[in-house]
């Protein structure tokens, strides 16, 4: 994992819950460019714990002078966003991984329709800049509960293709109207809560859209759950995964080597062989097929958990 130490150049509150962080090279210079939809993993040394959270890049992909992310404070979360909000100050340095894109634009599309719910606006802020620069046809729909919560509003360009849907102003997003009558070759991208992604998929399917034209990214963070034990056959260790810890984090804490990229159940990099399983794996990833999940022979430690008597992994 190629990570580099970057300086927090600017912290800007965007809404009561959402804050923008800008990172730059401490000694000046440019950062690798990226493609719209890419994320970076931010490392947060929190006492003895090293937290790693993935955040979409929201700055201009063609501007290497800095990286920007927007972090929503999740008070019930595992602590990463609280750390960013309360412990990080301008001038601090943090380690940031190389950009990785698991939610890229399909550049063959005749038109791109971007649908965001809440903080799901973040990957689209970079994609918008890319679409505008490449002069590609698009429309963007951004749904938020209230204007005050709509942190992305201030960052969206004033263009006729950009539509805000604020539900407490009685302006709810009508997915049927958005998806009906789009020209052949349109691709739809959804980012937001699972409910929104499911609703877009349902509406699109009802209108006869094929799956291949639908793209989505759920901002999946490792869900908490009951603590569980895991035996690690190769390293000969037994570890306990705490309620607010992911299995991957527990592996890292025990200094057991496990590769990773997205830490959100999407890329498949941390896929681990299950040697024996008495109980039920709670698969939370989007990588394994349903059949693979049912077979309980593979697990994605970044998001998935376990309940039962024995789980032994090839790590």
């Amino acid at each position: 994992m190629t990570a580099r130490l970057l300086r927090v150049a600017k912290i800007t509150p965007l809404s009561p819950l959402v804050t923008r962080f800008r990172f730059e090279c401490p000694e000046g210079g440019t950062l690798p460019l990226f493609s719209g939809g890419a994320h970076v993993v931010v490392e947060m040394p929190d006492g003895g714990l090293l937290r790693r959270n993935a955040y979409s890049l929201i700055s201009d992909p063609m501007d290497g002078s800095g990286y920007e992310i927007a972090v929503r404070r999740e008070d019930a979360g595992r602590g990463g966003s609280r750390f960013m909000h309360s412990r990080v100050a301008e001038g601090d340095t943090l380690r940031i991984g190389a950009p990785v894109n698991l939610f890229s634009l399909d550049l063959r599309a005749r038109k791109h329709v971007l649908i965001a719910g809440g903080i799901g606006i973040t990957p689209f802020l970079a994609q918008l800049r890319q679409l505008i620069r490449l002069q590609l046809p698009f429309e963007l729909h951004y749904a938020a509960r209230s204007r005050a919560e709509a942190a992305g509003l201030a960052l969206l360009p004033d263009l006729p293709q950009v539509h805000a849907h604020i539900s407490d102003e009685g302006n709810r997003m009508d997915l049927g109207a958005i998806l009906a009558g789009q020209p052949l070759g349109t691709h739809v991208y959804t980012c937001g809560p699972e409910g929104l992604i499911d609703a877009v998929a349902e509406t699109a399917t009802r209108l006869g859209w094929p799956r291949g034209a639908l793209h989505s990214e759920a901002f999946l963070s490792p869900p908490p759950g009951a603590a569980f034990q895991v035996r690690l056959a190769r390293s000969g260790k037994t570890i306990t995964v705490a309620p607010h810890q992911s299995l991957l984090e527990a592996l890292e804490e025990a200094q057991v080597d496990a590769p990773w990229l997205c830490r959100g159940g999407a890329c498949g990099q941390c896929e681990t062989v299950v040697l024996s399983c008495k109980g039920r794996i709670e698969h939370h990833d989007h990588f394994l097929t349903d059949a693979e999940k049912a077979s309980q022979t593979r697990i994605m430690p970044c998001v998935s958990r376990f309940q039962g008597e024995d789980l032994t992994l090839d790590r």
């Binding site: 994992m1 190629t2 690798p32 190389a98 950009p99 990785v100 990229l261 890329c267 498949g268 990099q269």
Partner: peptide, 11 residues
């Protein structure tokens, strides 16, 4: 293919 899909910039 699985390996290449996760190929990283700079690596």
């Amino acid at each position: 293919l699985k390996f290449l899909l996760n190929l990283q910039q700079g690596a």
